[in-house]
C-alpha cells in the first residue's frame, strides 16, 4: 500500500449478525468464562452489586442472560430463532448482558 492508495469508505461493513462488536464481546468472553464456577460467581456478584448501575435491570433479565451465557459457541442462530418466537432476539438479549466495571469487579 503506497502513500496515495488509501482505502476508501466504499467497503464499510457491519458486524455480520448486526450486533455491535462491543456488545458481542460481552457474549463471546462471557460464554468462555461462564463455565468456570469461580468466574461465574464473580460476574454474578458484580452484576448484582448495588453499585452496579444496571443491577436492577439485570435482575429483570437474569434468566435470559444466564441461559444465553450457558449456551454453546456456535448456537447463535438457533438461540436467535428461539428468542424470536417469544418476541425477543439474540441482539436484544446480548445488549442485556451487563458491562463489567473494573473499579469494583
Amino acid at each position: 500500500m503506497g502513500d496515495t492508495d488509501r482505502p476508501s469508505q466504499k467497503d464499510v461493513t457491519m458486524p455480520p449478525n448486526g450486533i455491535l462488536y462491543q456488545d458481542y464481546a460481552k457474549l463471546e468472553y462471557g460464554r468462555m468464562l461462564w463455565k468456570h464456577p469461580d468466574f461465574r460467581e464473580r460476574l454474578l456478584r458484580h452484576w448484582t452489586d448495588p453499585r452496579h448501575p444496571h443491577a436492577e435491570r439485570f435482575q429483570q433479565w437474569r434468566s435470559e442472560v444466564e441461559k444465553l451465557l450457558e449456551s454453546p459457541k456456535g448456537s447463535d442462530d438457533q438461540i436467535d430463532a428461539e428468542l424470536r418466537q417469544r418476541g425477543l432476539s439474540l441482539r436484544v438479549v446480548v445488549r442485556e448482558i451487563p458491562s463489567v466495571f473494573g473499579d469494583f469487579f
Binding site: 468464562l33 473494573g102 469487579f105
Partner: peptide, 11 residues
C-alpha cells in the same frame, strides 16, 4: 481472557 478482565477500564 481472565487476565484481560483484570485490565478492563476502571481496574
Amino acid at each position: 481472557a481472565r487476565v484481560c478482565y483484570d485490565s478492563l477500564i476502571g481496574t
